[in-house]
Amino acid sequence: MSQILLNINPIAILVHAAIPLTIILVYALVAIWGERKIAGFIQDRLGPMRVGGWHGWAQSIADLLKLIQKEDIIPTDASRFLFKFAPFMMFAASYAAFAVIPFSSAYIGSMVNIGVFYLLAVTSVLTLSVIMAGWASNNKWSLLGGMRSAAQMVSYEVPTIASVLTVVLVAGSLNLMTVTELQAGNDILGFLPNWLIFQNPFLIVAFIIFFISILAESHRVPFDLPESESELVGGYQTEYSGMRWAMFMLAEYADMLLLSLLGATLFFGGWNSPFGDFMGGPLWGFFWFMLKGLLLVIVMMWIRWTLPRYRVDQLMHICWSILIPLSFINLVLTALWEVIF
């Protein structure tokens, strides 16, 4: 242990750690603006138009400045420590998970060989922080939101893990860098990239299950029950204000990006270019990776402004009686496919 610590340059650690943080912060500013623009266009509006000139591009920055100036309100009867701690813990959980995401062929936060396992384990802490926030707020909406969120995230972790397991089964590695490297090249049908989603029909099913599950895991519509604005005010965020609320928002968007990037790594070849060696290399790799992740994020936003919210019982029904059996059957069939071919 002491040897490892001696070998690591603290400045290098800081730089390494700062890269995903920068990506998250820039992405959050763009994504919040983008989501509002997408919402506006879908509803035949314009969205933010004023701040910063061109199509209100600085709207998120203005919102951030406003949130910084807001009073930090802590309810009298709240459990102070838990209440203050929850948003930071939530962001820490989604930030920590970025350590094993291979942003390009040249950069990965930590080259651990149990990457996927670590990621899924760390994102489980999100559930804990949501319950923490809901319980510590001492508010019925918050508590209901927290409880719903706990039930939802615990349930949907099962199909997520089962579908990720399907990919791991095919790839034979838990290290996301290795999984990505496996998908290099354009051999399928002569032109399709070797992405896992094209390699095996069961992986398409796995991707559908995975996508539905990450929608639920990141509290996106139609599974946004934990914070359903129209019935629970704001769910577990009800009592939060100012920067603490902003931390929740940031963590939520970071979580969305994280799971989308995980999807891009597992099914769409990560940083591999869709044109083989053309436009390859570490920088283009980063570009392709972010493009794939952001496309998934945009689809999630598109779904948000299309669908209404599920009821709690429907949510549980979808998970326990459809997705979980299906994902396990899919896992077994993939295993058979791997044995036969």
Binding site: I38, F41, I42, Q43, D44, R45, L46, I303, T306, L307
Partner: peptide, 19 residues
């Protein structure tokens, strides 16, 4: 029904705004 709905929203996304 999900894809029908998404088709409707994407048409509005590229449609003209009334604002």
């Amino acid at each position: 029904s999900i894809f029908t709905g998404m088709g409707v929203t994407i048409r509005h996304f590229f449609g003209k705004s009334v604002t």
